[in-house]
Simulated assay, not measured.
Amino acid sequence: MTKFLLAVHVLAAIVAIGPVTVAASMFPPAARQALAAPEDPRAVETVRVLLRVCRVYAVVGVAVPVFGLATAKNMGVLGDTWLIASIALTVLAAVVLVALVLPRQTAIAEALDGEQRAGQGGDARAATVRLAMFTGVFNLLWAAVTVLMIVRPGSTTGA
């Protein structure tokens, strides 16, 4: 059962977290391009698609820690320091995505639709730069979790 849970956990991470990190990284430059040429329907549609990918895969990404915790329980490592650190970083990454990345992406997409100004008082370029920074933090947190999952300090598997 542990191998099955681990396989599902890894597959969920690849299928869910991979797309959201890539789409979130692509969003700021796509948004800058669309904001520079709002009359270009293709550029605006690209921003909308990237936002949709981020939203959908953020929800699908919940499967990753669910299967990760089930795997850890089966492996008997719930109290290991590396796992606790991974859980904390995962929670932090989720908070960054939900509280900092997705709302800013939504604001920029709405600005392209003419509903409100991006950046809430700042210019659109500054809003995309801040978004890129938060996206980078999100991606770095996931990179740290990935390293911890592979290295597993104190592991007896020799990895």
Rank of each mutant, 00 (worst) to 15 (best):
M1C: 01
F4E: 12
F4K: 06
F4Q: 13
L6H: 12
L6A: 13
A7G: 07
A7I: 09
A7P: 02
V8N: 01
H9P: 00
V10N: 08
L11D: 00
A12S: 10
A13I: 04
I14K: 00
I14T: 08
A16K: 12
A16M: 15
A16I: 11
G18L: 07
P19L: 03
P19H: 01
T21Y: 00
T21M: 15
A24D: 06
A24T: 09
S25N: 08
S25Q: 08
M26F: 02
F27N: 12
P28I: 06
A30L: 04
R32D: 14
Q33H: 11
Q33Y: 00
L35G: 06
A36S: 15
A36K: 14
A37T: 06
E39F: 03
P41K: 14
P41S: 14
R42N: 07
R42E: 13
V44I: 07
E45A: 15
V47H: 02
V47F: 01
V49A: 04
L51I: 00
L51C: 01
R52G: 11
V53K: 03
V53E: 03
Y57S: 05
Y57E: 01
A58C: 10
V59K: 08
V59T: 07
V64R: 06
P65E: 11
G68Y: 08
L69W: 12
A70Q: 13
K73M: 14
M75I: 01
G76Y: 10
D80T: 02
T81D: 09
W82F: 12
A85M: 08
A85Y: 04
A88C: 12
T90F: 10
A93K: 05
L97F: 10
V98A: 15
L100F: 15
V101I: 09
V101K: 08
L102A: 02
P103D: 03
P103A: 00
R104N: 12
I108H: 11
A109I: 08
G114W: 06
Q116S: 13
R117H: 12
A118G: 02
G121M: 14
G122N: 09
G122D: 14
D123L: 12
D123W: 13
A124Y: 10
T128Y: 05
V129N: 11
V129Y: 07
V129L: 15
R130T: 14
M133G: 15
T135K: 01
V137S: 08
V137F: 04
L140S: 10
A143D: 04
V145N: 08
T146F: 05
V147W: 08
L148K: 09
R152T: 02
P153F: 10
G154T: 00
S155C: 03
T156G: 14
G158I: 09
G158Q: 10
A159E: 04
